[in-house]
Amino acid sequence: MQAIKKQSTNKRKHKSPFQLALRRFLKNKLAIGGIIILVIILLAAIFAPLLTEHDPTYGDLLKIEKPPSEEHILGTDSSGRDNFARLLYGARISLTVGFSAMLFTLIIGVITGAIAGYYGGKIDSIIMRLADLVLAIPFLVLALTIIAILQEVTVMIFVTVIAITTWPTLTRIVRGTFLSLREQEFVLGARAIGSSDFRVIFKHFIPNAIGPIIVNATLMMASMIIIESGLSFIGMGIPQPTPTWGNMISEAQNIRILKDHPEAWIPPGLGILITVLAINFIGDGLRDAFDPKSNRR
């Protein structure tokens, strides 16, 4: 009996901390729900041309502010563009902006944070003072100023603007994680066996810092989507006629549409709400998975 038991434990596959985190994540129902919702929104965005035959940028001036009908499920906006088509194509822009702004910020943040945290000293001071400088200017003022100077805003420029105004947050997180890792004995141990800087960073620092980086990047993506919507709402984001959820909601600035055509602005509003909530659930799930000791009530 004991022999059998022993054999079975021997055969059990030993799970790495990463695999354990993945398993904890998959057990988190809220996070899985978030993933399912995000996938549905993603599919709707990718297959937008199959779901609607309308061009989101084509305005039929004879059909302005039409109520929902069979042809236009959600009616048309003040320029005669189909609201449903704009909702689907808008998801593309919102998700693209959210994801690429996050990726861009991630690259800048991880590189600057890693250099500052690993090497310390003067280079650390320079990077962190620069970060303080960016953080000291209110985000909206900085973003609006850059956009005002550039005048013409494309998706790429918009993403860059968000990235260069938000990177310090991630830099601080990565630097902090690296600073605490630098003092750990296993890093000293890696040096003691003669590992190169490169090996120490990639084999010992990054795997131990990946949790907070992924979690913060995910939560950051949600706030990027909100930033895009917010700037588009006040007319400083991606310009019309490109469909984005923020652009669609800005229609609601008109009191008449706000009152009489809720079908024009409620769907994109819900779109933002649901997407951001889904991403935040995923982020929280990742946080719990990577750091099971936190958030245990």
């Binding site: 901390p17 004995e185 296993f186 066996i193 003669g194």
Partner: peptide
């Protein structure tokens, strides 16, 4: 480093927990 090695005090901090 081949000839001189070290064993650290805290066995919980001296091993990289992400490596087998």
């Amino acid at each position: 480093r081949k000839d001189m090695q070290i064993v650290f005090q805290d066995p919980f901090a001296s091993l990289n927990s992400k490596m087998s």
